[in-house]
């Protein structure tokens, strides 16, 4: 039935009309939600004390836009590497049954490289949080 609705040769952009509509409706609803306070709420009554960011009563000094721990940056780099490799696996998974043992051996090698990469990062201490 799904095949009948959308055979690969005749698949067109019209399949993505519902996606566009979903995006549109969700965007409108969320935009209204986020901006409704401007209309319904009281006029902002601004003064220096009230406008300060919340720091548990401590006086506010300097900007929050400063350096932070490099560990988070390491996680982001590792994420890019691993996520890109995961993306490569999706097309492989779809045609896996046609590829058979050839596809299995190829992907085992690919996954071994991925695994060694993870082990390397692990041994180097990139995954440690202290």
């Amino acid at each position: 039935m799904i095949g009948a609705l959308c055979a690969p040769a005749v698949c067109s952009m019209s399949d993505y009309i519902p996606v566009a509509l979903t995006f549109l409706f969700a965007a409108i609803i969320v935009a209204v939600m986020v901006s409704l306070n401007r209309v319904l709420g009281p006029r902002p009554d601004r003064n220096a004390i009230k406008d300060e960011t919340f720091e548990c009563g401590n006086e506010h000094t300097g900007s929050a836009w400063r350096r932070f721990a490099i560990k988070f940056y390491m996680v982001a780099i590792l994420f890019i590497v691993f996520d890109v490799e995961v993306v490569f696996m999706y097309p492989w998974a779809v045609v896996f049954r046609e590829l058979g043992w050839f596809g299995f051996v190829e992907m085992t090698m690919f996954m071994a490289v991925l695994g060694i990469g993870l082990l390397f990062a692990w041994r180097k201490g990139a995954l440690e949080w202290k």
Partner: peptide, 20 residues
């Protein structure tokens, strides 16, 4: 929805509204 729309001083006003 009837609360005041508050943006703290020093915040990036556009991104502060874009994030939610």
């Amino acid at each position: 929805f009837t609360k005041e729309d508050f943006v703290p001083a020093g915040a990036d006003r556009f991104i502060h509204s874009l994030a939610p």
